[in-house]
Structure formats: structure tokens, C-alpha cells
Design a protein around this nucleic acid. Structure first.
Length: 742
DNA sequence: TTCAACCACTT
DNA sequence: ACCCTTGGTTGAA
């Protein structure tokens, strides 16, 4: 008998055990196996050699098994290598403790690779990644003798394993079960649905365990699993002493991570406490940005390219993904990964950064509706700039290229390196390339499930690219540097300006531009003229720009404060293929009640019938009639509860509010009922009497109601009026005119 | 009625 | 601690 057998399959899950890393491999034979790879994670100490010695002694004192040796490594900022002490920890579970001990014993040492999550470090070391196809040589005791990936994260056509997915959902009166109301649990598996009745807790758990055993799902996909379902099931299991078989690896407890609130992309977000499984994936659709934005296909794509375990990827910010990619690159190149204690600053949006730093260029658009307009967009402009001009923390103002005129950044006194490619461009280039290939594939496909999966994948990559820019200016990023960030915005201004000049020199009328998009007009030309312009600009700037679309009409909407002032981020336009592009309007805002969004959508659908601005003008009476119908509907009390629910994010703890806003009133109502609330959670409420002298009478939290709330029709009519005016003001419709239809 | 402070959103 | 896009609300002056 050979000492091992060979297994092919997919890598589903990786986590540390005392004996090594546990790997779950979904074999081609359909069997899910737990294997153990003896693996020694290592960290590095630089600094006075006395420090190494003290650290090592501390490990010995605490009986931690380790191997150490002196090796040559370099850090990102220097070309030369230096001697560092590599400390391998024999039992991976002791890694964190070992780092803490060593740091305490060697306060003057510089630590590297000391806080990288072990599953990631393992994958970097073995050149594996989540859901990779892999070939494993397995010894008799399930030990891994050798393992390697058979595919690459950069493949665009990759086979995914046939995952079995069990869905758990809740049904209740409130949009968030944690906010109260009666809740039922629903299980969905392979097209069948069943409710779990909670009359008898023991029977409930036994039948749930029965389903888990019978179906043995790879993925438990839930709504509210992290914050509501799993905690409740776990508590139920504890009180009834019926074991809960959610984990596939029964030697492990269900992992919990505390809830946290954080600021990201300009808004406060709540991350519920996570409940993660071993050997099986728990993914909560209501607690995952990646899953909500890009679906399972996008989540898997991000996990693969970023090399972050799927359950983690589902629950972290996109920034974690781009960080992991950079860490892996650095690790491969023998560059030491600096240690970061705490992350205090969060990412900013590109928008915030450019407003704050006068980064990108924006113009005031020519307000009102225009006909025959083409929009040109630079594709992933900031990442493309970083790649094309080699902008990276270690390449900016490098010692070698200061005199090279081609290395100078426009306007500002920085230069980039012309000799060696930086870490950031190395990371971004394959991402840009892969996304471009997905987009190519999409172009040749008509709408279909396959096309949708590719779309989700390219969107997942887009998010990684978007965030990469913020990362450069992120003060606490391991490899961040503000000069690199300034260089990117300087290049972007230069490039946009050149695009504008080229367009104008070719007879296009410039209407508007923001950062990476231009709106242009030229009489008597069609779409192909814009395509040719795009080619010219691409050739001149070295950055890909393409025609986003050709508008039959587009309206740059005026400020509501001052109708003669345009705002640069509100517009609506109709492409020649009948699609509409809408930015900044209520339909795109999460805080608008559904009935207002539906009204505005209906309104715009009427406008979609118009081909010219004169057509729009002629359609105004029809739109006004629509407005009248919606008002009647509201005043007759016929709008449903779901239609009038407003969801707004709590930006602070309920008792921190100084202002009696609708959000804070609803939050305080729930808090009085004993519902714990944290910043970032969404409050769902209905306006009951917006002008009531007592704040508590003004709104009602949905979760606190029995499903019948009398809404304040006039308050909703007012919101609709605003939604209508946003689009109609440039056509001469006034508030007074609208009031006549209310 | 005016206005400053406050709050929420945006890919 | 600081600076901060737009649009809207709140409550005191």
C-alpha cells in the first residue's frame, strides 16, 4: 500500500488547530474531508540581537514550541536586505500568544508578519486560495503530505464545486427581527420549504439537526443569521441541552465575533456579531456587504483573488480584501509585512477624499435638459492611473528618478519611479486585466444566468479596485502614503483636463465633467463620433476611456436651495437604447419610502417615452396627473405599511442624539422596549404625525407596531412633491403648481 | 420668519 | 481636532 493517496477537489475552508491547519476539501468523489497540514507559521523580529534572544527566551519559559533562525529579508522602503530572526511556531493555535509574549519580552524589536490571519498566511505560503481546485497527497492519518492548487485566481473560467446550500430565513412583521415582533423560521433546501414551529424546543432542535445530518449542507445561507437566528438557536440548544450540529467539524465550537460599528464609505455601518462555522460556511445576507452587492458569485470571486477565507470575506470591508492582496504580493517577494496594532482611521470615499483634498476635478454642469449628449467614462480611472504611472507608496519620490522629466507628476512636486514596478501597481494590474476580460465576455453575451454571474464577478472586482485608491491615503494602512494619494489625484486632474481639451478642439461642446466622466454635445453627429473621440483620448492619455452611452436627453438637475445653481451629482438621462441613468435622485436613495420611489420611477417611465426636450415638456401634464393619483391614494389611506416605511441609519447611540429627529424618536421608542441598538443599524419607522408637538407622536417604529399604523398622508405627499420637483423644476413646474394637484 | 446647528446620504 | 459635498429638519432667537 502506498504511504499516501492522491485526492483532487476544492478547498472549502482553512483554520488553525493545535496540530496544524485544518483543511476541508470537497473531493471529486463528493466526499467532504477534513485534512490536517502540519504547518508552522512564522513571524519576524528585527532590531538589536539582544532583543531576539529575549523574545526566544520568553517562548522557552512559557513552553511554547518554536524553531528560529536568522534569515535575510527586506522591508518595503529599502532596497537592501537585512538580517532578521524568523520564529516558527510549531502549534499554530499558540501563534497569537507567542507573538504577544515575544513583544512583551522584546519591546525594542520590530515585528513583522505578526498579525496576519493564519488561514491567509497559510494560503500565501502554500500558494493556495479559497475554492481553488487542488491536488492533495494524503497520508493514512488524514495528514497532508503535499498540496498544490491546480488553477489560478486569475483564471476567468474556473470550475466551482457543486455546493449544497441550505437557506434559513425569518418571517416577521418587522424588517429586522431583532427589533421585535413575532418571528417564524423558514428552511429552504433544494426547492422545498418548511417552517420550524417553535412550540416544543427539543423537537424543534432535533428536527433541525435531522435536516442538517440528512442534507449536510456546505453553505448555510441565512437572513439575520449572525445577529438573530444562530444566537437564538445556540441559546435554545444550551437551555434544552440538545446539541446543535451546525458545525461540520464537531471538535470546534461555533465561532463568535463581537458586534462593531464602523465608519466606511462615508456612512456609519453596523456589523452584527458574526457566527462562523467550521467545515461549513455560514453566510448572512443581511450582514455582508459583498453578498448583498455582488451575490455568491461576487463573494467567491473576491475571496479567490483577495485570498481571504469566504466567511471572513463576507463579513469584512472590501479594504480587507485589497490589503490581503498586497500582503500576499509582499510576502511572495520576500518583503516583510509590518505590524499594525490598531486601526483607528477608516477609509474615506473617493468623493470625500477629493472634496477634502481638492483631489479630483469637478465642474458645474450646464443646468437643465439637453439633447444628443454623449458620456465618456475613464474605466477604473484611479487604479488605471496607479498602474500606468506606477504610483505606489515606495515608488513615489524614489531616490533614483528625481531628475527624469517623464517621472514628474503634473502640477505638484512629486515624481514616481521609472525603474521598478511598485507593490500597488503589481497588485492592481492583474485585477484591471481580469475585470476587462469579464467585461469583454459580457459584451458578447445576451442577458442570461451565465452573464449575470460574470457581471457579479466583475462588480466584485470593481469594488476591490475602487477601494484601492482610498487605501493609498489611509493613514494606518501598512503600505499607505499620502504623497502617493496626492499623485493620483494630480494625474487625474491632468488627464480629465486633457480629455476636455481634446474634445473641445474637435468641436464638441463641453457640458459637464466629474472626476472620470465627461458629458459632451455635438450637433449632427451620432454615437460613432464619440467612439472615435474615445479612441483619440485613450491614445493621448494612455488611460482607457469609453463611451458610457449616448443620451437622447439628459437633465442636470438644479439645486433645490437655489434653482439657478446646478449640483454636479444629480442627473437623469435616457440612453438611445431606452435605458435610463439616474444619480442622486430619491429612487437611488435608501432613505426614501417605497411609495415615493415608486412614484418617481413611474414619473421617469413616463419621461422615458420622450425623445426630445420638447417631448418632455409635452409630457408634463401626464406626469402631473400621475402625481394627483398618488396623492389621492395616500390621502384615501390606501397606501400599505410597507409603502410608507422609511429606513434610516442610526449614526450614533440613541441617547447621544441632541436633536429629536425621526430616527432618534423611533430608536428611543425601541430602546424603551428593551431592544439593544447600535450605531449603523437601520431604523424602520412610519411618519404618523410629523407636526405633533410631542416628539413621540411624530413617528412610530415599525417593529413596535401590530402592523397597522396610521400614516401622516400630508408628510408623504410632501416627500413626493420634492421627488417630483427635483425632475420638473428645469421644465418650469413650480411648487405652487404641484400643490394644485395635491 | 430666520438661522445655526444638526443629521443623513452619496458608489 | 479638524474640515466638511448637498438637502433637509429642528427648535431657538
Amino acid at each position: 500500500m502506498p504511504p499516501f493517496h492522491r485526492l483532487t477537489g476544492w478547498l472549502l475552508d482553512v483554520y488553525p488547530l493545535s496540530a496544524g491547519m485544518a483543511l476541508w476539501v470537497l473531493g471529486d468523489d463528493g466526499v467532504r474531508r477534513r485534512l490536517i497540514d502540519p504547518y508552522m507559521p512564522a513571524f519576524y523580529i528585527a532590531g538589536p540581537s539582544g532583543e531576539h534572544a529575549r523574545a526566544i527566551r520568553a517562548l522557552s519559559d512559557y513552553r511554547i514550541a518554536y524553531r528560529h533562525r536568522i534569515v535575510s529579508r527586506r522591508n518595503l522602503w529599502e532596497a537592501d536586505t537585512m538580517p532578521v530572526c524568523e520564529v516558527g511556531i510549531v502549534h499554530p493555535m499558540q501563534f497569537q500568544q507567542a507573538v504577544a509574549l515575544a513583544m512583551e519580552a522584546a519591546p525594542r524589536g520590530q515585528f513583522y508578519q505578526a498579525d496576519v490571519a493564519l488561514p491567509q498566511l497559510y494560503c500565501y505560503d502554500r500558494a493556495l486560495f479559497p475554492l481553488c481546485r487542488c491536488e492533495v497527497d494524503v497520508a493514512a492519518d488524514a495528514r497532508v503530505a503535499a498540496i498544490h492548487a491546480c488553477d489560478s485566481p486569475w483564471d476567468v473560467d474556473y470550475p466551482l464545486p457543486p455546493l449544497s446550500i441550505m437557506e434559513l430565513a425569518v418571517e416577521g412583521a418587522s424588517p429586522n427581527p431583532n427589533h421585535g415582533g413575532i418571528v417564524r423560521i423558514l428552511i429552504r433546501f433544494e426547492g422545498t420549504e418548511r417552517y420550524l414551529e417553535a412550540e416544543d424546543a427539543v423537537e424543534f432542535l432535533q428536527s433541525f439537526n435531522g435536516l442538517l445530518t440528512r442534507y449536510d449542507p456546505d453553505v448555510v445561507l441565512t437572513d439575520w443569521g449572525d445577529s438573530y437566528l444562530l444566537p437564538r438557536l445556540i441559546r435554545l440548544a444550551q437551555t434544552t441541552r440538545v446539541p446543535l450540529d451546525l458545525n461540520r467539524d464537531t471538535t470546534q465550537p461555533i465561532a463568535s465575533r463581537a458586534a462593531r460599528s464602523y465608519f466606511s464609505y462615508g456612512r456609519m455601518l453596523a456589523q452584527s456579531g458574526a457566527r462562523m462555522l467550521y467545515g461549513r460556511l455560514h453566510l448572512d445576507r443581511r450582514n455582508s456587504f459583498a453578498l448583498a452587492e455582488t451575490g455568491l458569485a461576487g463573494l467567491f470571486e473576491q475571496a479567490r483573488v483577495a485570498n481571504v477565507p469566504i466567511q471572513q470575506m463576507a463579513r469584512t470591508t472590501t479594504g480587507t480584501g485589497i490589503t490581503s492582496m498586497q500582503l500576499e504580493r509582499a510576502h511572495r517577494a520576500g518583503i516583510l509585512i509590518p505590524y499594525r496594532k490598531q486601526r483607528t482611521e477608516e477609509f474615506k470615499t473617493a468623493f470625500e477624499l477629493l472634496e477634502a483634498d481638492q483631489g479630483g476635478l469637478t465642474y458645474a454642469p450646464l443646468s437643465g435638459y439637453h439633447e444628443g449628449v454623449g458620456e465618456l467614462d475613464f474605466a477604473s480611472m484611479y487604479p488605471a492611473i496607479m498602474t500606468r504611472f506606477n504610483v505606489s507608496p515606495e515608488t513615489i519620490n524614489c531616490p533614483c528618478c528625481g531628475q527624469d522629466p517623464l517621472a514628474q507628476v503634473p502640477e505638484i512636486s512629486h515624481h514616481t519611479c521609472r525603474r521598478s514596478q511598485g507593490l500597488v501597481p503589481q497588485t492592481l494590474a492583474p485585477l484591471l486585466h481580469k475585470r476587462a476580460r469579464y467585461k469583454q465576455q459580457m459584451a458578447s453575451l445576451s442577458p442570461s444566468p451565465v452573464r449575470q454571474i460574470i457581471d457579479q464577478r466583475q462588480m466584485a472586482l470593481k469594488w476591490l479596485l475602487v477601494v484601492s485608491f482610498g487605501y493609498l491615503g489611509y493613514k494606518n494602512a501598512r503600505f499607505g502614503r499620502i504623497e502617493a494619494h496626492e499623485a493620483v489625484t494630480a494625474y487625474s486632474r491632468d488627464v480629465l483636463l486633457r480629455a476636455k481639451e481634446i474634445a473641445e478642439s474637435q468641436g464638441f461642446r463641453f457640458l459637464h465633467a466629474i472626476v472620470d466622466s465627461l458629458w459632451l454635445q455635438k450637433n449632427g453627429v451620432g454615437r460613432d463620433a464619440y467612439d472615435r473621440l474615445a479612441e483619440t483620448v485613450t491614445a493621448a492619455t494612455g488611460l482607457p476611456i469609453a463611451v458610457e452611452g449616448y443620451y437622447r436627453w439628459i437633465g442636470f438637475l438644479p439645486s433645490r436651495v437655489n434653482s439657478s445653481m446646478p449640483v454636479h451629482n444629480q442627473f437623469v438621462g435616457l440612453f438611445d437604447d431606452g435605458q435610463m441613468k439616474i444619480r442622486g435622485l430619491e429612487v437611488r436613495r435608501s432613505d426614501a419610502p417605497p411609495i415615493v420611489k415608486r412614484f418617481q420611477t413611474d414619473l421617469l417611465n413616463v419621461f422615458a417615452l420622450g425623445r426630445t426636450v420638447a417631448d418632455l415638456q409635452a409630457l408634463v401634464p401626464e406626469v402631473l396627473d400621475l402625481f394627483r393619483q398618488y396623492c389621492e391614494h395616500l390621502y384615501a389611506g390606501r397606501a400599505s405599511l410597507e409603502d410608507v416605511v422609511i429606513g434610516k441609519t442610526l449614526t450614533q447611540a440613541p441617547d447621544q442624539y441632541r436633536q429629536t429627529t425621526h430616527t432618534s424618536i423611533a430608536a428611543k421608542e425601541l430602546q424603551r422596549r428593551g431592544v439593544p441598538l447600535q450605531p449603523g443599524e437601520t431604523m424602520y419607522y412610519v411618519i404618523t404625525d410629523s407636526k405633533a408637538p410631542l416628539p413621540d407622536d411624530r413617528v412610530r417604529a415599525v417593529a413596535g407596531s401590530d402592523g397597522t399604523i396610521a400614516y401622516d398622508a400630508s408628510a408623504y405627499v410632501k416627500l413626493m412633491r420634492q421627488a417630483a420637483l427635483a425632475v420638473l423644476t428645469p421644465l418650469g413646474v413650480t411648487t405652487q403648481q404641484l400643490r394644485m394637484y395635491e
